[in-house]
Amino acid sequence: MSAKTGTINPPRSTVDVPPLNTAANKPTLAKTLGRLGLYVAAIAISMFFLCPIYLITISAFSPQKEIFAYPKALIPQSLTAETVLFFWNATGVQASLVNSVIVGTLTVIFALLVGAPAGYSLARFIFRGRDSYKLLILTTRAFPIVILSIPLAVNYISWNMYDTLWGVAFAHTAMALPTTILVTASIFIGVPRELEEAAQTLGCNRALAFIKVAMPLALPGLAAAAIFTFALSWNETFAATILTQRNRTLPALILSQIADVGAPLPYRFAAGFFLIAPSLLFIFIMRRYLFGMWGQVVK
């Protein structure tokens, strides 16, 4: 019952409720089919991305003789850790896994230690040269980082840093740093400046205001940035291969085994699985920050 006309409607015992408008909500056949098509497309694309991961996983968990068997079944006949263990016990694998973790951790620490202050500065202050610095950082992305490794290797030999995990971590930090700076900047922009100012008026100095307010609020984003950096280091192959001889990271070891020694197939498949497994976790943790991490686009 509406009072649209402005006249007073006397209360009535029976209220005329217009029938529900169903026509507009009722999906037409074409709409349903179109919607269905979208799902089919989305699922097909998902298959394209997931199938290879499934296949490398069953390869890694098939017995070695099945890896060489032909034709293979798409559904594994038997699951065993034999192949994975063969890889696991191959020379250098365990040590290089440890190396990868150490290099990744060092890279995360360096990148955040050096990059986060810069990101904070770009996010919080307006100062002369701010835009130029931002632009400079963006342009570093236009340089292929592959070419860093060769002169760095030469330098490292003279600095006694060749074949050290520190050296690899520094190279990885240099590669990650531009992204770390821009990503942390966008994280700190998300923490309103007024919050820190409020803390300052309530008795904090600048550093304490940062620790008490900005840090806890930026923490989830910084954690995602850390994982991003770790993933970059975990996956980096070229520099790690060039800058090390015996202290290989996992991808460097695998690459050199494949390229130089011609490692057997079970080794390769198990290696592929070992490299990929953490990515599932990385992306799962970071899925909410995907666009902040990788979607960074010039304003």
Binding site: I56, P251, R268, A271, L275, I276, L290
Partner: peptide
């Protein structure tokens, strides 16, 4: 769809 973001080119090749 985003999983490959964290997959290295080496791993992709092996897969």
């Amino acid at each position: 769809w985003a999983i490959p973001l964290a997959v290295s080119d080496l791993a992709a090749g092996l897969v």
